[in-house]
Amino acid sequence: MSKRVLITGGGSGIGKAMAQAFAVDGARIFVTDMDEAALAQCPNSWLKMTGDASDPEHMRAVFACISDEWDGIDVVCANAGIAGPTALVEDVEPEDFRRCVAVNLEGAFLAAKYAAPMMKAQKSGVILITSSNAGINGFPNRSPYSSAKWAVIGLMKTLAMELGPYGIRANAIAPGCVEGPRIDGVIAREAKAKGTTPEAIRAGYEAGVSMRSFVSAQDIANMAVFLASDGARLVSGQVIAVDGHTENPDPKV
């Protein structure tokens, strides 16, 4: 029977790559995103819902639809997230900090909260949370983002403990720098803050990675499909970095 897979933040980037990879694997797909135009570009065969992953009412509606359409859920990819501000901690506005944490952390919490009863009832399921190597190493000038990505690892490990007795696994994927518009924006903002060029910042990031390379959204999607498979049936409570091995999380530029 084909897997029933929900991906939050699935309209573009890593989330869409995950959805496409699971679809190729034969899964039924449900994607949510705040970007209605991005969702409109997704295949019509996918279930879709526009909304904010950190909004409890939206997430309640998502899982009500899942219950009606599928009567259960096999895989939840809590992927929705935002980059947050790029600034020294003393220059970060409290509301910007809260918003970044809300989307990245509370969005994952809500996905797990509403998935857990369904998965417990069927005594199976996989919850995958998108963290970051910023959630392993820290990230200067990105305190809201790094804080949230550290926090989702604590959430994931607790889910693995609470839900493991019901046959449910939880893991986190920690991407490195993923090629695409989001990291381009981060690099541009950091270059401005440091008074240098985006090219210099990019070179510094690459120099801090053993494999001297950024990763692709497909690399992350491939890991998600594996972690949701029977090949990873006893992998739970783990943080899996897909980053080419970060040696230095704060390369000096």
Rank of each mutant, 00 (worst) to 15 (best):
M1N: 13
M1V: 14
M1S: 14
M1Y: 11
K3M: 11
R4I: 14
V5T: 03
L6W: 07
G9E: 09
G9I: 08
G9W: 11
G9S: 10
I14G: 05
K16V: 05
K16C: 09
A17W: 09
M18Y: 06
Q20E: 15
Q20A: 15
A21V: 02
V24Q: 11
T32D: 05
D35P: 06
A38G: 01
A40K: 11
Q41H: 09
A53C: 08
E57S: 12
E57P: 01
A61L: 09
F63C: 00
C65Y: 13
I66T: 02
S67P: 03
D74W: 04
V75P: 02
C77I: 07
N79Q: 07
A83E: 14
A83G: 15
A83N: 13
T86M: 14
A87E: 13
L88Y: 15
L88H: 13
E90R: 10
E93W: 09
F97C: 09
R99K: 12
V103G: 06
A108Y: 12
L110T: 04
A111L: 04
A111E: 09
A112C: 03
Y114E: 07
Y114P: 04
A115L: 01
A116T: 11
M119E: 03
M119Q: 03
A121N: 01
Q122D: 02
G125W: 01
V126W: 03
V126G: 01
I129G: 03
I129P: 00
T130C: 09
A134P: 07
G138Q: 00
G138L: 00
G138V: 00
G138M: 00
S146C: 01
S146V: 01
S146Y: 02
A148P: 05
W150F: 15
A151C: 06
L155Q: 04
M156S: 14
T158N: 13
A160G: 10
E162S: 05
P165I: 07
Y166V: 07
A172F: 10
A172L: 08
P175G: 00
P181A: 15
R182C: 05
D184I: 06
V186K: 00
A188W: 00
E190V: 08
E190C: 03
K192D: 11
K192A: 11
K192M: 06
T196W: 10
T197K: 03
T197I: 09
I201H: 02
I201E: 03
I201Q: 01
I201P: 06
E206L: 15
E206D: 10
V209E: 06
S210R: 13
M211E: 13
S213V: 05
S213C: 13
V215P: 03
Q218C: 03
Q218H: 12
Q218E: 14
D219H: 12
D219F: 09
I220M: 02
A221N: 00
A221M: 04
M223Q: 11
A224F: 02
V225N: 06
F226I: 00
G231C: 04
R233M: 13
V235D: 01
S236W: 10
V239G: 10
D243E: 12
T246M: 15
E247M: 15
